[in-house]
Simulated scan of single mutants.
Amino acid sequence: MWDRLTPSQLVELLDTTSDALLVLDRNGRPAAANAALLRLLDAGLDDLDPEHPLLAAAADSLSHTAPGGARLQLQVRRLPLADGGQALWFRDCTEQQRLQQELSEQTLTDPVTGLLNRRGLSVALEPQVSRCRRYDSPLSLVLLELRGDVDDPARVRVSRILKDQLRWADMIGCNEDQRFILALPETRQADAEQLIAKLRERLAAEFASELVDTGFGVAEWRKADNTQTLLNRAAAALAPAAASTAAG
């Protein structure tokens, strides 16, 4: 359809829409634009610099600062025209991306493994930490880091092993940065370390022929801990192992 339209026909067709349209002639020079595009530029076509980011758009999307200072996320399409020129079609996806980001932040599960994500685990951990404060009951947190050639199928395999090895009362979370978080209610650090030894052996057998290694950090709840400080201490326990691996 588009390759049968002249520049003027295309601009007339879209001049009442919110999408911005810039028509280039066969030499790549601006030939026409609709009202939405001129609002984006806050200038006329004669003032359009050939190096302007909109004119030079090569990707399927780009960020653009509107005249009022708002940062827009634009979807970009290139449409061939009948006279040998082309049209650049810009659609504002800022609100859509904002809503997707909000939805992502509200999601409690990891899309790959189906486990709790960090936010979901934090929500689930709050009652456990409150219980520790109230009854002085033990709670250990284990951070498992995958290192090496790790893809999504590998993360799924690890999640299955963890589900098989842990108790029903234990909680498993998974971050997108190749880390798993294990929350172990009624568990002292010494018992958590015994579990780590079993997991290390099981994972080593699972990835025996692959370039995948594991690191562990563990922290037991203390009276001054909240959910974040407990996570931080588990991460700090993992850091020396990660540093020594990198140094080697």
Results as ranks from 00 to 15, higher is better:
residue 102 E to A: 08
residue 102 E to H: 07
residue 105 E to A: 15
residue 107 T to D: 14
residue 107 T to S: 15
residue 108 L to H: 13
residue 110 D to G: 00
residue 111 P to K: 08
residue 113 T to F: 06
residue 113 T to D: 01
residue 114 G to I: 04
residue 115 L to V: 10
residue 117 N to M: 04
residue 117 N to G: 08
residue 118 R to A: 09
residue 118 R to W: 04
residue 120 G to N: 06
residue 121 L to K: 12
residue 121 L to A: 12
residue 122 S to E: 15
residue 124 A to F: 09
residue 124 A to Q: 11
residue 125 L to G: 14
residue 126 E to I: 04
residue 126 E to M: 07
residue 127 P to L: 12
residue 128 Q to C: 14
residue 129 V to A: 11
residue 129 V to L: 13
residue 130 S to Q: 11
residue 130 S to K: 05
residue 132 C to Y: 04
residue 132 C to S: 06
residue 132 C to N: 11
residue 134 R to F: 13
residue 135 Y to R: 07
residue 136 D to H: 13
residue 137 S to N: 15
residue 137 S to M: 08
residue 137 S to D: 15
residue 137 S to I: 14
residue 138 P to S: 03
residue 139 L to H: 12
residue 140 S to P: 08
residue 140 S to D: 02
residue 140 S to A: 11
residue 142 V to P: 04
residue 143 L to H: 06
residue 146 L to T: 05
residue 146 L to K: 07
residue 147 R to I: 01
residue 150 V to I: 03
residue 153 P to S: 04
residue 153 P to V: 00
residue 154 A to P: 02
residue 154 A to C: 03
residue 155 R to V: 02
residue 155 R to G: 03
residue 155 R to P: 03
residue 155 R to C: 02
residue 156 V to E: 08
residue 160 R to F: 13
residue 161 I to M: 03
residue 161 I to H: 09
residue 162 L to P: 05
residue 162 L to E: 08
residue 166 L to R: 00
residue 168 W to Y: 03
residue 170 D to R: 05
residue 171 M to K: 09
residue 171 M to S: 14
residue 172 I to E: 02
residue 173 G to C: 12
residue 174 C to P: 10
residue 174 C to D: 04
residue 174 C to H: 09
residue 175 N to D: 12
residue 175 N to K: 04
residue 177 D to E: 02
residue 178 Q to M: 10
residue 179 R to N: 03
residue 180 F to H: 05
residue 181 I to R: 09
residue 181 I to G: 04
residue 181 I to E: 10
residue 182 L to V: 09
residue 183 A to P: 00
residue 184 L to I: 10
residue 185 P to C: 10
residue 186 E to D: 14
residue 186 E to M: 15
residue 188 R to F: 04
residue 191 D to A: 05
residue 191 D to M: 06
residue 191 D to R: 07
residue 192 A to G: 12
residue 192 A to W: 03
residue 194 Q to P: 03
residue 195 L to A: 03
residue 196 I to V: 15
residue 196 I to S: 01
residue 197 A to Y: 05
residue 201 E to N: 14
residue 201 E to S: 15
residue 202 R to K: 06
residue 203 L to D: 00
residue 203 L to E: 05
residue 204 A to P: 07
residue 205 A to I: 07
residue 205 A to K: 10
residue 206 E to L: 06
residue 206 E to P: 06
residue 207 F to A: 08
residue 208 A to L: 07
residue 208 A to C: 12
residue 210 E to I: 05
residue 210 E to W: 05
residue 211 L to H: 14
residue 212 V to M: 04
residue 212 V to G: 03
residue 213 D to V: 02
residue 214 T to M: 06
residue 214 T to E: 14
residue 215 G to N: 11
residue 216 F to A: 01
residue 216 F to I: 00
residue 217 G to F: 07
residue 219 A to F: 08
residue 219 A to G: 09
residue 220 E to F: 00
residue 220 E to T: 01
residue 220 E to L: 04
residue 221 W to Y: 09
residue 221 W to K: 05
residue 222 R to N: 08
residue 222 R to P: 05
residue 223 K to W: 14
residue 224 A to R: 13
residue 224 A to G: 13
residue 226 N to C: 11
residue 226 N to W: 09
residue 227 T to G: 07
residue 227 T to M: 03
residue 228 Q to K: 13
residue 228 Q to T: 12
residue 228 Q to V: 06
residue 228 Q to E: 15
residue 230 L to R: 08
residue 232 N to S: 13
residue 233 R to N: 05
residue 234 A to F: 07
residue 236 A to T: 01
